[in-house]
Amino acid sequence: MTQTHADYRLSQLDQLEAESIHIFREVAAEFEKPVLMFSGGKDSIVMLRLAEKAFHPSRIPFPVLQVDNGFDFPEVLACRDSWVNRLGVRLVVASVDDDIASGVIVDDGKTSRNRMQIGSLLNAIEVNGFTAAFGGGRRDEEKARAKERVYSHRDEFGQWDPKMQRPELWSLYNGRIHEGEHMRIFPLSNWTELDIWHYIDREQVEIPSIYFSHQRDVIERDGMLLSASEAVQPRGSETIQSRTVRFRTVGDMTLTGCVESAAGTTAEIIDEIAIARVTERGATRGDDRFSEAAMEDRKKEGYF
């Protein structure tokens, strides 16, 4: 039987997977000390899954770096530990609290934890001598990311200069760096939020339970539902209410809002997102709301 071209068709999700695996292998082959930045969020879990596939049956040939901002959801840390144990990868934790205590970063009382993480992250990269750091950023997330390369060059200060980006052609990535510089690598550049969920659904991989619908004590603040905790207490006329919610992104507990949702499975989440009318960052990330160019500014300083 002769085969036609139709037999050699690859779905878009398979094409994205193949492209990302290519990127992981390229970095592992060309960089001396890569590291995977793991936030515990769904994007970084998809990265871990792709890395697992890229090197199978070998172990992932680089460690995982997590910046502990002191306000991580316990469910996220539990999920992280489960992944790290199953894959047998080395976990490097950079703690914002430790870095404040040792004077690596300064807590002036005005700077958000999210911003202070930048200092902890850059310090961990420098101290460990990492030359390439995988990040879960996607170009569909935000305007400033739409122009970022898969290989994104950072100078000795960890800064991104959008005007000095290297052209990136075909699938030929240029990983040349000088002493003290590093490269941020974004293997999920071409994935959308929906692609990520379809992939999680298809692969049936473990993600933090807070992505799924659950009962939670929340406080409504500036139109966002924040999880009530020691660090987030009612102000003024605010009250603690129990709601059925889930998180669309995970980050700092004090800044990351949840949405009311009954979606309890990945399939239900996909249906919910398919009809969602607000971007995930716009809805639930206090850190992106401050100004239209908030992400651009943080990226230039060395944000994830």
């Binding site: 878009q12 094409q15 399939a267």
Partner: peptide, 11 residues
């Protein structure tokens, strides 16, 4: 929904 989307192709 889920099946349809994972079968989409890419341009």
């Amino acid at each position: 929904m889920a099946d349809e989307s994972t079968q989409m192709d890419l341009l």
